[in-house]
């Protein structure tokens, strides 16, 4: 564990708390992509299968349980409790285009051709693009509630913090995880447009609005 990774994990944790807070206080999942949330459930379950057979640390164990639990809870809230506030007609990104290529990439790029390792690779690749249905939706509506943009910013910053963590680990431990690094850089890259608008508008107290 190092400073950057901790900041990344805390940012990830914060993003989920902001998301649940938004759903609870506005009693609505308006502006949120159900597809993106469903992809995160798939990401966490396929990546954290090792919960059942590998002990890393208490921190690792608790965080994994939290990420699986909170993503399932989010999906439940969106699907059942606040279902009427979700508009499927604007959540139209085809997730087949993400899941298929990620599955193929995972079969090609993995550290060992075993079920758990291929699923782990799959989860890393899928996480890197899981935000696309959400960003696509944002692009379509052209605006977002401020609380939703805080959620997206925290979620984007989380993986960005992992990048200095990997550099740090390379120099201190000699550890390199090319699959996570390439996917993590791609994942952060997808947020650049969003970050630009977030930091130039929302952080200055303006509403999140995309230029027409």
């Amino acid at each position: 564990m190092n400073f950057f990774r901790l900041l990344g994990d805390l940012s990830h944790l914060a993003s989920i708390l902001i998301l649940l807070h938004k759903i609870k206080t506005t009693r609505s999942c308006r502006g949120l992509s159900f597809k993106t949330q469903a992809l995160y459930v798939a990401v966490f379950i396929t990546r954290y299968l090792d919960l059942t057979y590998r002990w890393v640390s208490l921190y690792n164990f608790v965080m994994k349980l939290f990420f699986i639990g909170s993503s399932c809870a989010t999906l439940y809230l969106m699907r059942y409790k606040y279902c009427p506030t979700h508009d499927p007609s604007i959540d139209t990104f085809k997730i087949e285009y993400l899941v298929g290529p990620c599955a193929i990439l995972a079969l090609i790029f993995n550290y060992k051709f075993s079920v758990s390792e291929v699923l782990w690779s799959f989860s890393i690749f899928l996480e890197s693009v899981a935000i696309l249905p959400q960003l696509f939706m944002l692009q379509r509506t052209g605006e977002a509630e401020t609380i939703t943009t805080h959620y997206l910013a925290a979620l984007g910053i989380y993986r960005a913090f992992y990048i200095p963590n990997w550099i740090y680990r390379y120099f201190t431990e000699g550890v390199v995880d090319p699959i996570a690094i390439v996917a993590g850089i791609a994942q952060t890259g997808l947020y650049l447009d969003f970050f630009y608008v977030y930091f130039t508008k929302v952080m200055q107290g303006e509403k999140f609005e995309l230029p027409a």
Binding site: R47, V56, N60, M63, K112, G174, V175, P178
Partner: peptide, 10 residues
């Protein structure tokens, strides 16, 4: 170069 197969990250 050591591949991180321990997957100790989240």
């Amino acid at each position: 170069v050591i591949l991180d197969q321990a997957h100790d990250e989240l």
